[in-house]
Amino acid sequence: METNLTINGTKHRLDLDPRTTLLDALRHHLGLTGSKKGCDHGQCGACTVMVNGRRINACLTLACMHDGDEVTTIEGIGALGNLSPLQEAFVSEDGFQCGYCTPGQICSATAMLKEIAEGWPSHVTNDLSSKPALTTEEISERMSGNLCRCSAYPNIVEAIRKAAGESA
């Protein structure tokens, strides 16, 4: 199935078995191994990428369903020598231990901060009409789709808060 994807700004034309998930297309066909295959069932969030600016689980969607879409992976967010504010903050706040979930955490948090800026409410937002605040409770709730088996959660929350403060 011919599928055209723009990944981190570069156009790719792929001819894939329709069964190929977006995650497998990234990892096996394009060599972009930053996105991780943790559970392959949408439960851990290690595969989180942004499609047309929104975070999704790349393991739970087929590449062929994204013909014409723009995909941003961790490789498109920053690299050594050119880290994004969130990547810088994960380093300075020690927001990881083994690092396996980190690409998904950072892709997820990048999109999540945009959601907060756009005023999206969450399960813990008291008033659905108010602008949500960047509290620990809000960050934890909004990041619940990204698991960290090392349980670096307090530092992940701190890193996100720090990065958000610097970009605000």
Binding site: G45, P121, L128
Partner: peptide
């Protein structure tokens, strides 16, 4: 869940949606 009309007039539905799944899954 984010629709301003829904949040105002049918908040129980907005709340139910926000109580389900994760941010990534709700986007899909």
């Amino acid at each position: 869940a984010n629709d301003a009309r829904l949040r105002k007039g049918w908040p129980v539905l907005s709340r139910a949606l926000l109580a389900g799944a994760s941010g990534q899954l709700r986007n899909k």
